[in-house]
Design a protein around this nucleic acid. Structure first.
Length: 660
RNA sequence: GGAGUCUUAGCUCAAUUGGUUAGAGCGCCGCCCUGUCACGGCGGAGGUUGCGGGUUCGAGCCCCGUAGACUCCGCCA
């Protein structure tokens, strides 16, 4: 371990300068818990022996661990006017320097804040001379006297702005190279920030984000502990999941040719803990999914994972409402209104075109199927004849914000990106209905349309004509984009929570030609829909599943699970998993269910997304200390890397990747 | 796998219709400066315009390819 020499320049009030070197004892941190408790503003300092010419280590090893010598007596955000006159020692980074040739000001930064340090040549010439050489990000330790700032020089922008510390000692603990990007101004490229993440995290904004994250997990643990939940860890090395996302595989050296998988979620384990009779489980669980990344998706992410026995849907929802209340109270200081409104999946899709509707604004989808039931407009006619629907939204006041050219671009966008057949629109400008389709409408249709949509001067209508689901989804996306255009959600501090409930249990997948679980295969069908499993009307079965949504972001989702062996087996069958495959892949679970599994259910919240929203960040990368980029690469460590062939041999695997 | 946007000094960005030696602010280096707080003043260094090719008398700018970053679709709760 390289030991850095530490240059100490110290000067006592008697102006007896001495220069010497010291090194810390790496095995004995100077600030252990016991000594931290003894920090105070009036601790005594001791003179360290020193020579002048030869750099020498003079301080006995145990000196550093003595409470009489510490790196600092307090933090850079703690000193106020009432501490005036006290002698303090601060340690931190040079945030900025203002060198007037004579007097020098340094803003000293640590995790908690800034303190202005003053070097006065007329009082401490040697120390001030050394201070001229200070540069940004140097790590220093200073000792000095807390003084009220001169009249009129207080800085209201700083919490410590009423005081400054007049330095009489300066120790340069470690010089810094010039940082590759400024830490105080506009944000640099994200890849540069990720390359030097340890510097990026020095910025107070990032430090704040990580503090908020800590408070969220702390509040979560406190709250769930109070509610009787046990934090239980589950394996990271587990089995591949047959359904859902791609797994990260881990080869087993001891069992050549066999693989573990990293868990996509602790789903089966948390259910087995219920069978085990632990009754109330939670975990701040790391989850892994090998899928393409997004601003709100990382290959590894964290869930607040909860499962309980003998609970109903509404009990679980109240529990989570209480948790979110606590989290928002302790991080943002706001009291969110509970209980959250409930909306069925069918309602959410029909009115907002989304299973995670953003309720901060209206612009609801309206059905025009009735208006156009006799239409001669060919496009609408064929949709209606095919059992489809006509729906529309009214972007109030959008006419002045969007040109005809832009409207064409929007149409292009829904076609290429959303796979829609088109996007009809009417722009109400200067008393005219500008639209390629209005000429096909009868006067009666126009009148009814205007009435239902409350269509007025300055508005823009968007139409969706398709089967109910795709028509709603496309308009749901247009609704969000229109809200962005109209700046409906900018600067909004609104927090619109809701539960979306009664999700469909199953959805038919045309590509794979079989039914797939919408939530996951352990989700419980609603009792009143059980008969549909017999009749084969699988698409109409509703699940006891619920998502909690905030401002259009899915914070988490859960369900009441199947706890009966036979029902679970039957559902696997519908999903196309035959009895043999069930035994191989889910035998342990089915067997467990046959030993008196209690009714149970749970939920998982996306911690990263939750913290992102609490921090007002645009990406979960802003609330993860060391995230990976778009391609799953950690730019700082270059992970993932190629490995020695020998390592692959040990694991009995080989790579088929083509070398560049 | 696909689409879009972007890539110019250490950082953030300019550069008119394709036209002289590619500029500015910040940062950096040097000198000056005793109450600043994004201190100030003077001076200086710093560029293969991501990379490769093409069109042109002439390319940072136009075209083709390629690499990388970000956003989105597919994928993924």
């Amino acid at each position: 371990m390289p030991l850095r020499l530490l240059k100490i320049i110290r000067e006592q009030h008697a102006k007896r300068p001495s220069f010497f070197f010291k090194k810390p004892n790496p095995r004995q941190p100077p600030c252990n818990a016991k000594h931290r408790a003894e920090w105070n503003f009036s601790h005594r300092r001791v003179n360290l022996p020193g020579g002048t010419a030869t750099p020498r280590w003079k301080c006995p090893n145990n000196r550093l661990s003595s409470p009489l010598f510490m790196y600092r007596s307090t933090s850079c955000n703690s000193l106020r006017k009432e501490h005036s006159g006290q002698s303090v020692t601060l340690a931190g980074w040079v945030n900025s320097r203002r060198d007037h040739g004579g007097v020098i000001f340094i803003d000293l930064r640590d995790r908690d804040g800034l303190t202005q340090v003053v070097f006065r040549p007329e009082e401490h010439p040697q120390v001030s001379e050394a201070a001229h050489g200070l540069r940004g990000e140097d790590v220093i330790q200073i000792t000095g006297k807390v003084s009220p700032r001169l009249n009129g020089t207080e800085n209201s922008k700083l919490a410590t702005g009423d005081i400054e510390v007049i330095a009489c000692e300066l120790t340069i603990l470690n010089k810094s190279d010039v940082p590759p990007f400024p830490l105080d101004s506009k944000l640099a490229n994200e890849d540069l920030r990720l390359n030097y993440r340890y510097l990026d995290l020095r910025r107070s904004e990032m430090a704040q984000n990580l503090k908020t994250r800590h408070r969220v997990t702390k509040a979560t643990r406190d709250y769930l502990d109070e509610k009787g939940f046990l934090e239980i860890e589950t394996p990271i090395l587990s089995n591949p999941t047959p359904e859902g996302a791609r797994d990260f595989l881990v080869p087993s050296r001891l069992n050549p040719g066999s693989f573990y998988a990293l868990p996509q979620a602790p789903q089966q384990y948390k259910q087995l803990l219920q069978v085990a009779g632990l009754e109330k489980y939670f975990q701040i669980a790391r989850c892994f999914r090998d899928e393409d990344l997004r601003a709100d998706r990382q290959p590894e992410f964290t869930q607040i994972d909860v499962e309980a026995s003998f609970v109903t849907e509404s009990e679980l929802q109240s529990l989570i409402e209480g948790l979110l209340f606590r989290v928002f109270k302790e991080t943002r200081g706001v009291e969110i209104p509970t209980p959250f409104p409930r909306m069925t999946y069918a309602d959410a899709m029909d009115r907002f075109g989304s299973d995670k509707p953003d309720l901060r604004f209206g612009m609801e989808l309206k059905s025009l199927t009735e208006v156009f039931k006799d239409t001669q407009f060919k496009v609408f006619r064929s949709v209606l004849d095919g059992g489809g629907v006509i729906k529309a939204i009214n972007a109030k006041g959008a006419a002045e914000h969007i040109s005809k050219e832009q409207l064409k671009k929007w149409e292009e966008w829904v076609k290429t990106e959303l796979g829609a057949k088109g996007l009809a629109y009417i722009r109400f400008k200067d008393g005219e209905w500008e639209s390629p389709i209005v000429k096909f409408f009868t006067d009666a249709e126009k009148k009814a349309l205007a009435e239902i949509m409350e269509f007025h001067e300055g508005d823009v209508l968007f139409f969706g004509a398709d089967q109910w689901q795709p028509a709603s989804e496309v308009l749901g996306r247009v609704r969000l984009r229109a809200a962005e255009l109209l700046k409906l959600i900018e600067d909004s501090s609104a927090l619109k929570f809701l539960w979306v409930v009664d999700f469909p249990l199953l959805q038919f997948s045309p590509e794979d030609n079989h039914w797939a679980a919408v939530h996951h295969p352990f989700t419980r069908p609603r009792t009143e829909d059980l008969h549909l499993m017999e009749s084969g009307d699988y698409g109409k079965i509703r699940a006891v599943a619920y998502d909690v949504v905030l401002n259009g972001v899915e914070l988490g989702g859960g369900s009441i699970r199947i706890h009966e062996r036979d029902l679970q087996s039957k559902l696997f069958g519908i999903l196309g998993v035959g009895p043999e495959e069930q035994q191989i892949k889910f035998g342990h679970l089915l067997k467990a269910f046959s030993f008196g599994a209690p009714p149970h259910g749970g939920i998982a919240l996306g911690l990263d997304r939750l913290v992102m929203l609490l921090c007002g960040a645009e990406s979960i990368r802003e609330v993860i200390a060391f995230p990976k980029n778009n391609r799953g690469v950690d730019l700082m460590t270059q992970s993932p890397v190629e490995v020695e062939p020998r390592l692959l041999r040990d694991l009995a695997i080989s790579s088929t990747a083509k070398k560049a």
